[in-house]
Simulated scan of single mutants.
Amino acid sequence: MKWSEFCIHTTNEAIEPISNILHESGASGVVIEDPQDMMKGQTDLGEIYELNPEDYPEEGVYVKAYLPMNSFLGETIEGIKQSINNLHEFGIDVGRNVVTLSEVQEEDWATAWKKYYKPVKISERITIMPTWEDYTPVSSDEIIIEMDPGMAFGTGTHPTTVLSIQALEQYLQKDDLVLDVGTGSGILSVASVLLGASHVHAFDLDDIAVKSTMINAELNGVENQVSAKLNNLLEGVEQEADLIVSNILAEIIVRFTDDAFKVVKPGGYFITCGIISGKKEMVLERLKSSGFDIVETNKMEDWISIIARKPESR
């Protein structure tokens, strides 16, 4: 089968919404080529990349999707372009927004993309490992999360995932009940259980995300402690939680801070990420107005995580 590679030159801020548009349009793979990955080299956490600088833009990022070449391809591409243009209405900067198309043979795509995904140590205790790689733990307390990136992957681990897991490692307590809002691949759900959570309820509007969460939970032997279902944020959720984690766009986070405050227990935490630096104050103000105290904020590249806490007395 022949595939069409759809490449959009955009911004870091637009990566996740554009990836969602591509998934919903039937993309059978998404690659994110970010020039900042070229500068990481070997970090304090042990990341090593072997990447070609010629594959990367001088500024912004490339988001590439793979679409089957069929009679509907033209209509699909036009629909994708329109949806990306509509992101301006949500205040999302899509940057250059330049689209290019090229033809790819299935056998080339099916194997070549794996060069982008290697084992990576993202925190003091956690290493993420793709299913096809061999990896030997370097310490007895190291936690290995085995992941199949399936239909979404990038050049290493995205800063929002790293920030989220580092926060979970610090604030999640043994036997906590966790809500993962906008679960995506399910990596935060899996990490929560491996860090000691008794159970995680994972929610997403994308059926692919729900299925991916359970696949990755099973890969890591935690499928009995993770429940994933289709749901719009915390709408209709009454389950009390010790901790809520949400790695989604700032514009989405501010829509459910009141609901998060209702369901998290007094003294419980709300970990939010997916926040571009320019949207930090908007999210902080919304969290405070819902009743949360701000515990700390952290930054990696241009991304922010916020850890908020529900006061004991309310």
Rank of each mutant, 00 (worst) to 15 (best):
G156V: 01
E5S: 00
E103W: 06
E124F: 01
L195K: 03
S164K: 11
N247R: 10
L194Q: 09
L172V: 07
L188S: 05
T76H: 03
H9G: 11
N20M: 06
I187F: 08
I145T: 01
P130T: 04
V63T: 07
E75C: 03
G268E: 14
Q239V: 13
I122M: 02
L101T: 03
L87I: 05
I144W: 01
P311A: 00
I275D: 03
S227T: 10
S28T: 03
D108V: 02
E13G: 13
H23G: 12
N232E: 05
R255Y: 11
D242T: 14
V120N: 00
E312T: 02
I122P: 02
A202P: 02
V283K: 04
P35W: 06
V178C: 15
E89P: 07
P266F: 14
V94I: 15
L168R: 04
L163R: 15
G268I: 10
K2L: 15
T43M: 05
A112F: 00
D37S: 10
E54A: 10
V99K: 14
I15F: 08
I126E: 02
H9E: 13
I306K: 10
K174T: 11
N231T: 01
T100R: 06
Y117W: 01
E223K: 12
S28N: 10
K288D: 03
L234S: 04
Y62C: 02
S4Y: 11
S289E: 15
G274P: 14
T183C: 11
W303V: 08
I187T: 05
G291N: 09
V94H: 14
V295P: 09
S198N: 09
N70K: 09
I143S: 01
I252Y: 05
N70A: 10
E5W: 00
D176K: 08
I80C: 01
M129P: 01
Y49F: 15
K118G: 00
I271F: 11
I307W: 12
H158P: 15
L219K: 04
K280N: 08
L67Y: 14
V181D: 04
S277V: 11
I21H: 13
L195H: 07
I32D: 12
G26F: 03
G274N: 08
G46I: 04
Q170F: 07
E33A: 04
D55Y: 03
D206A: 00
G186N: 08
D293V: 00
M151L: 15
V210G: 07
I122G: 01
I32A: 13
L287C: 03
V31A: 06
T183W: 06
V61A: 12
V190D: 02
I304Q: 13
L67S: 08
L179I: 15
K229I: 02
Q82F: 12
I32H: 09
I77C: 00
N224Y: 06
I122Y: 02
K64R: 10
L194W: 06
E47R: 07
V283L: 04
A241K: 14
F292W: 09
E285M: 11
K118R: 04
I48K: 12
